[in-house]
Design a binder for these strands. Structure first.
Lengths: 154, 154
DNA sequence: GGTGAAATCTACCTAGG
DNA sequence: CCTAGGTAGATTTCACC
């Protein structure tokens, strides 16, 4: 596995903010030739450092006016409960990310809904009736004051 | 503002998973000509539906082995406390996203650190000593079971 | 929906440490 | 021998028809 140097880190930082930068523009920003910048980018893709390029969407323009984080506690720690919950999560498009965390609650989920009624439906008609789910604690996002900054460069 | 139809939504879904799809590939997936697919994509960019294209990085390969979510409660509700906290957040690269939420805690933050020691330093040497910060509750990410799915299509 | 000019990527080649 | 810079063919985009 090749070593990552400071130039690679700066390249990653730039591409996290704007993946459309051309090899030429990257080269100018990093004092490299376009071909070298392109070669570095390709190597970062091949080694799995860059996992993918993704379009970011404005959820409000899509009609998704409500975002929330939910902490979910399962009824049991048994593996089949976790598996049943996992199926629920996969089948629900409103849930975009799920993390397992240390601490009292078992899962943290990020959800997007069209409105408050849809969020309440998700909680009371989908999550709480599910046998694997014991408790749901939901907090609605009022504002995002810092969004998707590049990863820190260690 | 032009209306978004079902084809636009499918296009957005594809581009969220892979922003490198060419107009030709998009056209094949959507039963459109390449020129029409490209035109739709351009329109979604111009109207701000697509806010940017971003490279996604594998944090572990960068040496960021610890992720966490933190809930931060401020010492006061005064605007200058929030503003001081905002400056702290902006100056700290480990904090990649910050949300304001409903409920008891004032902020939810997502952080990436090289290791547990760095995370503890962040909590005890940066956040807690800051005059605006009253309480910090941190939960480490053990696993991400669903990651960055496309936004739901309403 | 199609076409062509301009721009970009990428594989290959050459030079230098 | 390995890394950096340059070049040409193929691919893609985008303004226009």
């Amino acid at each position: 596995m090749p070593q990552i140097d400071q130039t690679d880190r700066r390249l990653l930082k730039l591409l996290q903010r704007n993946a459309q930068l051309t090899s030429q523009e990257l080269g100018e920003a990093l004092n490299l030739s376009a071909s070298q910048a392109g070669r570095r980018r390709q190597r970062l893709e091949e080694t799995g450092m860059i996992t993918r390029y993704a379009a970011q969407i404005d959820p409000r323009k899509l009609g998704l006016d409500v975002q929330a984080f939910m902490q979910v506690e399962l009824a049991s720690q048994a593996p089949q409960a976790a598996q049943a919950f996992q199926q629920l999560v996969e089948s629900c498009a409103d849930i975009t990310s799920v993390w397992t965390l240390t601490g009292e609650s078992d899962f943290l989920m990020r959800v997007y809904c069209a409105n408050l009624a849809a969020l309440n439906d998700l909680i009371h008609r989908v999550l709480l009736p599910h046998p694997a789910v014991a408790r749901v604690h939901s907090q609605i996002v009022l504002d995002q004051t810092k969004r998707d900054a590049p990863l820190p460069l260690p």
